[in-house]
């Protein structure tokens, strides 16, 4: 297999690209999850706010990634910063939408009995609504992750030295184009699959935890 030959030959270049890719993806998921959670909670609480938030987060997704990164580089300079901001923006829709949906799906009787027993709004959110919404929210984070892992490659267009560079450098080559493209794509796919597996594991662990950890 000449792809793996290519990867082996260029490992000195590809390895740091994998590290950069992982760093960017990790940061973006963490940030987009936090912001998306906040926006989702706000959207679940207020219908007018929800309309605005959903409109904005969906519109962001319609902007082509290289255009968004290019635009953001006007304010954030080149390389990582505009890409991190852009990827965070892309990830907002699935996280926000699922957080809102997960909270809204909680049985109204459960919420009413919680309030009736004297839980404050914050306690209802933290002890009842969010724990019950966790599987749905993590579903949104998984969607965002797969998207971010893939779109991060486009960051190469504004100078990010991640796996996108390997793909980008292949374009215009007279020979070995396919090998070079695959040398970028295969690690990206592996990162995507790995990240998804890890999150699926967390999703399962947290579902278990919701049952037993709260015991005391």
């Amino acid at each position: 297999m000449s792809v793996f030959q290519y990867i082996a030959d260029n490992w000195g270049v590809i390895e740091p690209q994998i590290v950069t890719h992982l760093e960017i993806v990790g940061e973006c998921i963490a940030i987009t999850s936090l912001i998306g959670l906040g926006l989702g909670i706000a959207a679940a609480r207020s219908e007018p706010l929800s309309t605005v938030i959903m409109a904005v987060t969906s519109t962001i997704l319609t902007v082509p990634s290289f255009a968004l990164f290019g635009l953001l580089s006007i304010w954030f300079g080149l390389a990582n910063p505009p890409v991190i901001v852009g990827l965070v923006l892309y990830g907002l829709l699935p996280v926000t939408r699922n957080t809102r949906a997960g909270i809204k799906a909680v049985d109204l009787a459960v919420v009413e009995s919680a309030r009736g027993m004297g839980m404050s709004p914050l306690q209802v959110l933290l002890q009842v609504e969010l724990p019950l919404a966790v599987p749905v929210i993590l579903g949104g984070i998984r969607q965002a992750t797969v998207m971010i892992v893939a779109i991060a490659t486009v960051g190469a267009t504004v100078g990010v030295d991640d796996l996108g560079q390997t793909i980008l450098s292949a374009i215009g080559r007279t020979t070995g184009t396919i090998d070079a493209v695959l040398a970028g794509i295969i690690p990206v796919a592996l990162i995507g699959i790995l990240a998804d597996l890890i999150l699926a594991g967390i999703q399962r662990a947290l579902s278990r935890g919701r049952v037993s950890v709260a015991a005391t």
């Binding site: 459960v110 009995s113 309030r115 004297g118």
Partner: peptide, 25 residues
């Protein structure tokens, strides 16, 4: 209001038990 509610038991038709918690919890 929360002190008041904690001092009054409340039972509804749909019960509204917390599905992610055990009977004891």
């Amino acid at each position: 209001v929360n002190d008041l509610r904690r001092s009054i038991g409340y039972v509804i038709q749909q019960v509204g038990l917390f599905p992610h918690q055990t009977v004891a919890e």
